[in-house]
Design a binder for these strands. Structure first.
Length: 827
RNA sequence: GCGGGCGUGGCGGAACGGCAGACGCGCUGGACUUAGGAUCCAGUGGGAGUGAUCCCGUGAAGGUUCAAGUCCUUUCGCCCGCACCA
């Protein structure tokens, strides 16, 4: 150990040694209990940012801690390597191929991760753009295809003009592209979808298995899936064989329907207006609405506009005819694409009816009042009893929901129905840098899956990356032209590639068997390692990646490819790293580069600061001075041990049995710290308080080491310093390793057993209790530990201060709390 | 509008219903120094007092309790998610 802490030298030395010894390599199996610790793998954008550093520092503490606790820990890293930026870079700069750009970025970022000293088993690394990986992404697509879960359909999809590709619903945020913020347009295209809606109920129900997930994330997924219970009701169209089936959550209000609204794109509209006098007017309206952007279409700021189409339908319960309209606010994708208008009991319908002069028909009366359609100022949406509803009059409306639906069911004019807001997952992308969809179109056989033995469908390297709105693959005849696997005739390959969220929906299985070439993974290994015990990443994936991964896992489970129902048992969503109260971004000019920090203070300091400055789930405000503080702390640790290294090295034996005074106190603090740090890490991931406890231990050791050697039990000193290094090791892996070696230990500090505390050592002889009079702190007393409530009370009542304050007053009550305080209530 | 979260010193943040402000930063004073942006020591929520002490303090207002930052009700502010979902 040199006199001065040279972080650069120390970190380089140990990173090299760890690599030489392959210290973090993890065997596939072990008798020890397994623990799978995983951080969301990054997109190789070029450089790590502070969010990455935070994510991986948190994961590394968990992995190292669990390893020291005796678990067999899998802690892998890889690359979410397909995606748009690579292609955009190729378009922008020219000359550089997306594959090369990606490979270069990966090697950069791998180097950065190694400099941070994260304990990954690099033997398991892969990138999703490796043919050996995407071969299995394609294979998994085929499994979904064969199970009927992948299908192609023509529909109005979200088109991002910025990215020149379609987007999944989940990737549209406030009507804009999640990536580039461009306003999303609608386009009618034939695209591939995954039937995630088939799993809506299970995705919802199995959330009860996710006790280890933040409530917030579960609620977000719940809202996204958006389950609603209601009924489908058939309205016959007047003078036609056609029927409108409407979905409603309020079948109790069917008697109050005074009009019916269809989505402008509803297929019935064409049929109903053909040849009618309003045909042209209706067509014009439909055209206008279709041209609206996603934002305008779904914003509730926009005024509701409707247009009668000159047809009417028959209420199955009343037999009344009500007019049919189309309106801009009705969405084809939700429910059945139409809405029944009940102005008396739905606020939106109320406003709409007032605007267009539709009658208001009250069918639910509130208790103790009578609604008058002419004088109502708002819809009545609360509970009540049914009126104007024939045989259902007098029923509470909650009961009427069931009664009316059952009645309609018997008549064959309605049924119970559950609807979801969730839509199927659109996975086609009109871009080059992704896994090809393994389908060949044949004029005779239609879409034919590529045989598994022909996988992977390789991405051709010679391609032009013009953003034309069509996949660049379409311009590559060598790729497009293929032989139909079924009939041997000429065929054309699908030229769209898969959404990269597909690649990241199964990568955590691949880590268990990265080299496997007979399947995507070795089931014995996934059975052993999965589910992931701790998953760590940003909350921005609450819906996208996490929902898709859960869906994939359920599909794979059904296909008997894996044995776990859920992918991630525990989820930690880390907060953002802020600077000056805002997210770091180039445009704001408030970016702090991890490279600079590591160069200036070293990786150990960077990690310490990020873990110390805030609890992991909360946003973290970057502070250069805070970093200084952590750097100072590590220097302090160094300077504490450096002059003592030989003493410690030469001390053998355990602390004496009957320690007294400072030695006993030092040992007590040490064991108390072991307890605190262990609990903070394992029960709540409160690394910030764990670090502050370690700082307190260092402060105590500074006091202790100033004592004359004759007063000091060297075995206590050694035990305390050993504990300090072991507790600090997961946070600052390099400096602890160096000091561990210098103080005469064999083997890596990271392969040691986590220290356990001696409960006897923590016990205090004397404790300070608080004396309160009328709940105000009036005194403190040093009393022997372990007093009973009665003994405490007795002692306190003799306290001169208490005597003075209670003099001449009536003692109403005395509340002794053992080990804490005594409160005396007087009058 | 609906759902969730958060409001504590100058700052980041601690506090099983039981001493509010641990730990760190910053600041003030001192020590060691040719020097200090190094290090060490002491102090540091606000107010009153020479002082021992006393009063006030966790966004605001109520409530429960011997005792509330913590539990309950109302309210204000900020952040996040969903949003014409029938």
């Amino acid at each position: 150990m040199k006199e001065k802490y040279n972080f650069d030298e120390v970190e380089r030395k140990w990173q090299e040694r760890w690599a030489e010894e392959d210290l973090y390599a993890v065997p596939d199996f072990s008798d020890r209990p397994k623990y799978y610790c995983l951080e969301m793998f990054p997109y190789p954008s070029g450089k790590l940012h502070m969010g990455h550093v935070r994510n991986y520092s948190i994961g590394d503490v968990v992995a190292r801690f669990k390893t020291m606790q005796g678990f067999h820990v899998l802690h892998p890293m890889g690359w979410d390597a397909f995606g748009l930026p690579a292609e955009n870079a190729a378009i922008k700069h020219g000359g550089i191929h997306p594959a090369q750009w990606t490979i270069d970025n990966i090697s950069n970022m791998r180097e950065q991760l190694k400099q941070l000293g994260i304990s990954y088993d690099w033997n398991r690394e892969f990138a999703t753009c490796d043919p050996e990986y995407y071969r299995w992404t394609e294979w998994l697509f085929l499994q979904l295809f064969h199970s009927g879960l992948a299908y192609r359909k023509l529909s109005a999809v979200n088109w991002c003009p910025g990215c020149a590709t379609v987007l999944a619903n989940e990737q549209v945020v406030n009507g804009g592209c999640e990536r580039c913020k461009s306003t999303v347009e609608k386009r009618e295209l034939a695209q591939w979808f995954f039937k995630i809606t088939d799993y809506a109920d299970r995705l919802l129900g199995d959330m009860e298995l996710l006790d280890g997930w933040p409530e917030k994330v579960k609620i977000m997924q719940e809202n996204w899936i958006g389950r609603s219970e209601g009924a489908e009701i058939d309205f016959k169209i007047d003078g036609s064989q056609e029927t409108i089936t409407v979905y409603t959550t309020r079948p109790d209000t069917v008697f109050g329907v005074t009009y019916m609204v269809l989505a402008p794109e509803h297929p019935l509209v064409e049929k109903l207006i053909a040849g009618s006098k309003d045909e042209a007017k209706v067509r014009e309206f439909v055209r206008k609405v279709r041209n609206l952007s996603e934002i305008d279409r779904t914003s509730n700021e926009v005024e509701k506009v409707g247009l009668p189409i000159g047809a009417s339908c028959v209420n199955p319960l009343t037999g009344d005819k009500v007019p049919i309209l189309i309106a801009n606010y009705v969405l084809l994708e939700y429910g059945t694409g139409c809405v029944m208008g009940v102005p008396a009991h739905d606020q939106r319908d109320f406003e709409f009816a007032r605007k267009y002069g539709f009658p208001i028909r009250v069918v639910i009366q509130p208790p103790g009042a009578e609604l008058e359609p002419d004088t109502m100022e708002a819809a009545y949406e609360e509970e009540g009893l049914l009126v104007n509803s024939g045989r259902f009059n007098g029923l509470p409306n909650q009961e009427a929901i069931k009664a009316i639906t059952s009645h309609l069911e018997e008549k064959g004019q309605g049924r119970f129905r559950v609807t979801y807001r969730l839509r199927d997952w659109l996975i086609s992308r009109q871009r080059y840098w992704g896994a090809p969809i393994p389908i060949i179109y044949c004029d005779h056989c239609g879409p034919v899956p590529v045989p598994e033995s022909d996988l992977p469908v390789l991405l051709p390297m010679e391609v032009e990356f013009k953003p034309t709105g069509q996949s660049p693959l379409a311009e590559c005849p060598e790729f497009v032209n293929a032989v139909c696997p079924k009939c041997g005739g000429p065929g054309k390959r699908e030229t769209d590639t898969m959404d990269t969220f597909m690649c990241s929906s199964w990568y955590y299985y691949r880590y268990t068997s990265p080299g496997e070439d007979s399947g995507p993974w070795d089931k014995a290994k996934t059975d052993y390692w999965l589910p992931v015990d701790q998953y760590i990443g940003g909350v921005e994936h609450a819906i996208l990646h996490l929902l898709y991964s859960r869906f994939f896992t359920k599909v794979l489970y059904d296909l008997k490819l894996i044995s776990n129902l859920e992918p991630f048992t525990n989820l930690l969503t880390q907060g953002m790293v802020l600077k000056d109260g805002a997210k770091m971004s180039k445009s704001k000019g408030n970016v702090v580069s991890p490279e600079d920090i590591v160069a200036r203070y070293g990786a150990d300091t960077a990690r310490m600061f990020i873990l110390f400055a805030a609890p992991p789930e909360r946003d973290l405000e970057w502070s250069d001075q805070g970093v200084e503080g952590c750097f100072r702390f590590l220097n302090r640790v160094w300077r504490l041990v450096e002059p003592l290294q030989d003493v410690i090295k030469n001390t053998t034996g355990r602390p004496a049995e009957n320690l007294v005074g400072v030695n006993r106190e030092m040992r007590r603090i040490t064991h108390k710290t072991i307890k605190k740090v262990t609990e903070d890490i394992s029960t709540r991931f409160n690394f910030n308080t764990a670090v502050s406890a370690i700082m307190e231990l260092v402060n105590a050791l500074y006091q202790f080491k100033e004592l004359p050697e004759t007063d000091r039990d060297q075995a206590v000193l050694r035990e305390s310093v050993d504990a300090l290094l072991l507790l600090l090791a997961p946070f600052a892996p390099h400096i602890t390793e160096e000091i561990w070696e210098a103080t005469g230990h064999q083997g890596s500090v990271h392969m040691q057993a986590w220290p356990s505390y001696d409960p006897a050592a923590i016990v205090e002889d004397e404790i300070t209790i608080v004396v309160q009079v009328n709940s105000k702190v009036r005194d403190r007393m040093l009393v022997p530990a372990g007093l009973t409530a009665a003994q405490m009370q007795e002692l306190v009542m003799k306290d001169p201060k208490v005597l003075k304050l209670t003099e001449g007053k009536k003692i109403v009550k005395i509340i002794p709390v053992p080990g804490k305080l005594v409160n005396i209530v007087v009058k």
